[in-house]
Design a protein around this nucleic acid. Structure first.
Lengths: 211, 211
DNA sequence: TCATAATGTATGTGAGTACTTACGAAACAG
DNA sequence: CTGTTTCGTAAGTACTCACATACATTATGA
């Protein structure tokens, strides 16, 4: 088993190649399944046996792609964020009326929690005693916050009303989405109520006035 | 070992008492330690061995007080909420100026996450595939929401401005606190910034105007 | 064809895991 | 004291976990 990545000076090994590796392809193929499993079962609940079962492979296949379970989880978190962000970007690029921030809120009020992906973030937040997981969560929420702030700042230039600074409003939007998800997850908010929540509070936050 | 609770018709056993039970006292003594352990380690991370170690007792002592680990977790959740609510009530009763909702927000902006207790709620949300845990989380967030809504409704009668309905504002406040905690937990929000977040957005939500 | 390296399947393995049992000592009522 | 119950400590149980090994198969470049 030749080392795949060499740190420092790369020792050019004899390039006696055998069968070509398909790990990257395998990785991309497995990650959505892995992410869903972590999302549904939590970090400890998603056992390596269960991950393998859902992927339709043996456990050691997973261990050939990632060094350990934690790496699988970190990859899953990354995937989930990339997925969400690309979704929002395509929403923004799809053209439409209204400013970016309100369109994203509008989109989320209809589709938020649809894939249950946000649950993996609760899982991550419950595992922040691990330094690497904490760092990953930090990066995700940091990117999330920066993305929203940029959208909010872009719109507020055209705004008629004085608002809270975009930086704070972005955090409030994160909280709004989180609360909506909690309410939905626990059956405390029906779909209509949740939509009303995001729409009404969204307007208060972004435009400084109630509906 | 006589049955402690008899369902249905209570069969009055011979009252040949031996050593008096101190389970209730023990329960109250252990619960804060248990809650802290679940808070720091998560549901699966807090093993029964670790719980016992932190309590300074053997595992079976815990199993004499609660039937299983899940019951310990549910008791811990209950404790955390009772603790928070009684804290808020004493804040409200301590007298002071301003309306209830703003005083609670003000208090939380200074002490939120001080005990790290909110983390146990993330843990619970990550275990909602279990029906009992889900139900417990539902009850806690339901009570939390009702409490906040009552405070907000009480103040809004004297309010000069039109606001979002108290029901929705209460959810937004829950989200605001949650976002503040996430930011704090991950080191994305310093103490001053977090306070500014809760103060500024709190005013937008409750009074419909920026600072 | 042949050496090389990746693949798939099956089967460990040692360290936990929640939960239990055994048993002597201590604390009450009569 | 005596019978009864709880208490504290220690050890054990059946099982699951993340992760490892063994080995035959398959695909490649030379």
């Amino acid at each position: 088993m030749a080392p795949r990545t060499c740190r420092g000076k790369v020792v050019v090994e004899r390039a006696r190649v055998g069968r070509p590796s398909q790990q990257e392809q395998k990785r991309r193929e497995l990650i959505p399944v892995i992410a869903r499993a972590f999302t549904e079962l939590g970090y400890r609940g998603a056992t390596t046996a269960e991950l393998a079962r859902r992927c339709g492979v043996q456990e050691n296949i997973l261990y050939r792609v990632w060094p350990d379970k934690k790496a699988m989880f970190l990859a899953a978190i990354e995937f989930v964020y990339e997925f969400s962000e690309s979704t929002w970007l395509s929403v923004l690029e799809s053209g439409g009326d209204g400013d970016p921030a309100r369109r994203i809120l509008e989109f989320e009020s209809r589709h938020h929690g649809e894939f249950g992906h946000y649950r993996i973030l609760f899982t991550a937040l419950g595992e922040t005693d691990d330094a690497e997981i904490r760092e990953a969560a930090r990066r995700i929420f940091g990117r999330f916050h920066r993305f929203l702030r940029a959208q909010i700042a872009a719109r507020s230039r055209r705004s008629r009303r004085a608002l809270a600074p975009p930086e704070l409003t972005a955090w409030a939007a994160i909280g709004l989405g989180t609360a909506a998800n909690i309410g939905r997850e626990l059956g405390l908010l029906g779909d209509a109520e949740r939509r009303r929540l995001m729409s009404t509070i969204g307007r208060v936050l972004l435009e400084g006035e109630a509906s």
